[in-house]
């Protein structure tokens, strides 16, 4: 089961224009963990995620997925076990219909047609959008797009799910539904997000990135209580942990 492990050792990355991105990032995420990666805008969260499936290669440091370091040779295997859900579903859903899109990965894996159809149906049922199968992606709502994006990744049966801002541009109900869905997954989950409330719901562990470095790594509950740490990383307590001004006002009124 050790192949669900994600490990980064001293990752350093500089953007093509010379700005430093990652300045020595190390962590180890073990099987079945749910980890939130939080940090302010430009905290290179996305850059870090792109390293995890070999899209970007660090100038220094290594990424290990399972037992092997990520190299060009095992890129295909790594990409199969690390499923990426992008921030913008319009970039991820590029095929003419939902079915085609979910089938894209399995077909590339060389599955037989009947098997592909089964896999696609299963993935769509898991995220609860089987009825959208023949729809073109531009006729989906944001929440549906997100669900289908996740299905496209699930169809590859990955061990590790990496998600970039999965709750962005979702209405509250779709967001809640997504969180409940993600809770049911037993994959190792790595979620980059600004949505600290979601992190609180979904992830037992949080890594805080600030200016290319990890400033904290620990249990989500503990980190979200540490106002000092959050402030110094340009973050703020999850809304539900802030004292509610409305409720406070009501109390006064009574």
């Amino acid at each position: 089961m050790s192949h669900h492990i994600v490990e980064a050792v001293d990752l350093q990355y500089t953007y093509p224009d010379g700005t430093a991105g990652l300045k020595g990032v190390s962590f180890r995420i073990s099987h079945g963990e749910s980890v939130a990666i939080v940090g302010e805008n430009g905290a290179v969260k996305s850059t870090l995620l792109l390293h995890l499936n070999g899209y970007l290669t660090a100038a220094q440091g290594t990424v290990r997925i399972g037992d092997y370091p990520l190299t060009k040779q095992n890129l295909k295997a790594v990409r199969r076990s690390v499923g990426m859900v992008f921030q913008n579903p319009d970039d991820q859903l590029f095929m003419p219909t939902v079915f085609d899109d979910v089938a894209f990965g399995p077909l590339n894996l060389g599955l037989a047609k009947e098997e592909v159809v089964l896999t696609v149906n299963r993935a769509l049922e898991t995220v609860g959008v089987a009825h959208l199968k023949q729809r073109p992606p531009y006729k989906l709502s944001q929440g549906e797009k997100r669900a289908v994006s996740i299905a496209t990744v699930l169809a590859m049966s990955p061990d590790i799910l990496v998600m970039d801002e999965p709750t962005s541009s979702l209405d509250p109900r779709s967001r809640r539904r997504l969180i409940e869905l993600l809770k049911t997954f037993r994959h190792t989950k790595i979620v980059a997000t600004h949505d600290l409330d979601m992190a609180l719901d979904l992830c037992e562990r949080t890594i805080v990135l600030h200016q290319g470095r990890i400033t904290a790594d620990g249990p989500t509950q503990k980190i979200m209580r540490d106002e000092e740490l959050l402030r110094s990383s340009s973050l703020e307590k999850p809304l539900r942990m802030q004292s509610c001004p409305v409720c406070a006002g009501e109390k006064k009124a009574f």
Binding site: Y55, K76, N88, D91, M95, D100, G105, N108
Partner: peptide
């Protein structure tokens, strides 16, 4: 830039230069 991201998304799902469709 979008083309770049799409290409990336394709690679993530095992794109090998050949698009298959049923």
């Amino acid at each position: 830039e979008r083309a770049e991201r799409i290409y990336h998304a394709m690679c993530c799902r095992g794109f090998d230069g050949h698009i298959r469709i049923i």
